[in-house]
Simulated scan of single mutants.
Amino acid sequence: MPREKEAYRDTLELIATAFPGKTMLTATEVAQFWGKDVRTVRKVLKDDLVKHVGISIVKLARRMS
């Protein structure tokens, strides 16, 4: 069973604090959180973004940690 990365829990908490009550984030919200252009976010997360829905905060935390 794979171990979670050390920074995963902290990253998940950071995202959850920034977007209280949300479980899915749009590319625009991730761009705002990262301080990047939305096109950059779509390029970096292209395999993880679900069309018209976004990305779950759990998957985003996993990718960021």
Rank of each mutant, 00 (worst) to 15 (best):
K51G: 01
D10Q: 11
K51Q: 08
L49H: 07
V53C: 08
Q32N: 08
Q32R: 10
E29C: 01
M64P: 06
W34C: 04
A31C: 01
K43G: 00
R62F: 08
V44T: 14
V50W: 01
T17W: 04
V38T: 06
K43N: 11
A7F: 13
K22S: 14
V30H: 00
T11Q: 10
V53I: 15
K46S: 05
L25M: 05
L49W: 04
D10F: 07
P20W: 02
K59L: 09
T26R: 02
E29Y: 05
K5M: 08
L25E: 01
A18N: 04
S65W: 08
K51A: 13
L45V: 10
V30N: 04
D10S: 02
L49T: 09
A18H: 14
L25V: 04
L14Q: 09
V38N: 00
G21Q: 08
V41A: 00
V50A: 07
D47R: 10
P2L: 15
H52Q: 03
T26M: 05
Y8N: 11
P2V: 15
E29K: 00
L60R: 08
R9V: 15
L45P: 02
K43R: 14
A16S: 11
F19Q: 01
V50R: 02
E6F: 15
K5H: 15
L25I: 03
D47C: 01
T26F: 05
E13H: 10
A31N: 08
E4Y: 04
V44G: 00
S56E: 09
E13S: 07
K51L: 07
V30T: 03
I57D: 09
H52V: 02
K22G: 08
G54C: 06
D48W: 07
M1Y: 09
V44A: 05
V50L: 03
L60I: 12
Y8H: 13
E13D: 12
D47K: 11
V58N: 08
T23K: 04
V53G: 03
M24R: 09
D48H: 13
V38W: 00
K22F: 14
T17E: 03
E13Y: 10
Q32K: 10
T28L: 07
V41I: 13
T28K: 13
R3H: 13
G54S: 07
L49C: 06
K5E: 15
T23D: 05
L12W: 11
A7Q: 14
V44E: 09
Q32T: 10
M64R: 14
S65N: 12
R9L: 13
T40L: 14
T26S: 08
K5N: 15
P20I: 06
K46Y: 12
L12Y: 12
R63I: 15
G35I: 04
S56V: 02
T23A: 06
E4P: 04
T23C: 01
T17S: 01
R42C: 03
A61V: 11
L49E: 01
R39Y: 11
W34R: 14
T28Y: 04
S65P: 04
V58W: 06
L60D: 13
F33Y: 11
R39L: 03
G21S: 03
P20Q: 03
R62I: 12
M1R: 08
I15H: 00
V44Q: 05
D47I: 09
F19R: 03
L12E: 06
W34Y: 12
K22I: 12
V30L: 02
V58C: 06
G54T: 05
R39M: 05
L49K: 01
V44K: 12
